[in-house]
Simulated assay, not measured.
Amino acid sequence: MWFHYIGSQTTAKDAFATTSRIVGPLLATHFFNHQTHHRGQVHAALTYFGHDPGDTDLPLVLLQV
């Protein structure tokens, strides 16, 4: 299990802190990639129905604001 990789002398508090340091960035990365996935789906649907969704790249959108 996951706690075997942390070390046999680790307390529960240390194990939670170590797991949080590992899982936090993974969750942030997952959420970012997942929203990108949905943005692509919306872009594809709009294009399919004949609409021009415009720029969806964040730097280009921010330049238009």
Rank of each mutant, 00 (worst) to 15 (best):
M1I: 03
M1H: 07
W2T: 05
F3N: 09
H4I: 06
H4E: 09
I6Q: 02
G7M: 01
S8H: 07
S8N: 06
Q9V: 02
T10E: 02
A12Q: 10
A12V: 09
K13R: 14
K13N: 12
K13P: 04
A15L: 00
F16L: 15
F16T: 13
F16D: 12
A17T: 07
T19D: 08
T19N: 08
S20N: 14
I22T: 11
V23H: 12
G24A: 08
P25R: 07
P25I: 05
L26R: 15
L26H: 14
L27A: 10
A28L: 13
T29N: 10
H30L: 15
H30F: 15
F31K: 12
F31R: 13
N33H: 14
H34C: 12
H34K: 15
H34S: 15
Q35L: 13
Q35R: 12
H37Y: 14
H37L: 14
R39Q: 09
R39G: 01
R39S: 04
G40C: 01
G40D: 02
Q41N: 08
V42Y: 10
V42M: 10
H43S: 04
A45F: 04
A45C: 04
L46G: 00
L46W: 02
G50P: 03
G50D: 03
H51S: 03
H51D: 04
D52M: 02
G54W: 00
D57Q: 10
D57H: 10
L58Y: 09
L60T: 06
L60P: 00
L60N: 10
V61T: 07
L62I: 06
L62E: 07
L63W: 11
L63C: 11
L63P: 07
Q64K: 09
Q64W: 00
